[in-house]
Design a protein around this nucleic acid. Sequence first.
DNA 1: CGATTATGTAATCGTTATAGTTACATTAAG
DNA 2: CTTAATGTAACTATAACGATTACATAATCG
Lengths: 139, 139
Amino acid sequence: MAVHVLAVLAYREGDRVTSAALAGSINTNPVIVRRLLLALQQARLVDTCKGPGAGSRLARTPGRINMADIYRAVEAAEPFATPSQKPNQACPVGHGIRVALDRIFASAEAAMERDLARTTLAQVLVAVRTGKTRRTTGS
Amino acid sequence: MAVHVLAVLAYREGDRVTSAALAGSINTNPVIVRRLLLALQQARLVDTCKGPGAGSRLARTPGRINMADIYRAVEAAEPFATPSQKPNQACPVGHGIRVALDRIFASAEAAMERDLARTTLAQVLVAVRTGKTRRTTGS
DNA sequence: CGATTATGTAATCGTTATAGTTACATTAAG
DNA sequence: CTTAATGTAACTATAACGATTACATAATCG
């Protein structure tokens, strides 16, 4: 959903857009959009002003924002479910499994982010217009 | 958590283990374990028998089961949140964004699975025992 | 200054996913 | 037939997320 917000901002390149207008495009509530914008502000992806005639706009050109930037800005929690309860420490497997899995999952997430980084917001905008996804040619 | 189950099974290589015993190691309920085992059975990762003295064991050696196998067996839904409501189709961005994002996310997930596939259950077992994670040397 | 416009933020509700729990049917071994 | 195990359904609890309402705050413009 964060991508949608940024895509609309990219569409109106340069213009400031209000949270109400963004919410209209996503079919949601302005408050939801504002909460998203807070995260995007902290990540220095958007630039928001208050007051009449104000709103948000991209902090950089769409070509310099990639999907990994957005993912990191928005996705606070890990994509892997962390069990609420600790495993049985008495069991030889339960004892060390957490650390081992954390490493593996961190690596997997890093791989995913590397892939996401290959697509910029500008490319998403082109894909939205044409219906086809274009990627940077592999390294 | 599914990894934990399989790691314990790998630890007792060959032996059949009951869901109650597995639940003891994970500090959870036997029913939870059985629900996991159902998914692992469908993925042909474990072999389960009923009756007294029965239980589950690995269907292949730990060296021939990797993290991507387990991930695919267990993770039914996508890791990316799919908005409940459709975007506003009247908006030029809302119109085509779904398709574009689906492709990007599918690619990212594939990248993650490729990374997960680099670690076998046997390697996890070694890591659990030694406290260090070893991976296959990059391609 | 003061009215208007927009963001920031808290409180609350509904939905969904997952873990957990209890209960019971089913199957296989002895 | 008894017993030990899985298969499965029903229900509860919890957490995450979207949605909604409400209100404080800041900035522009008359």
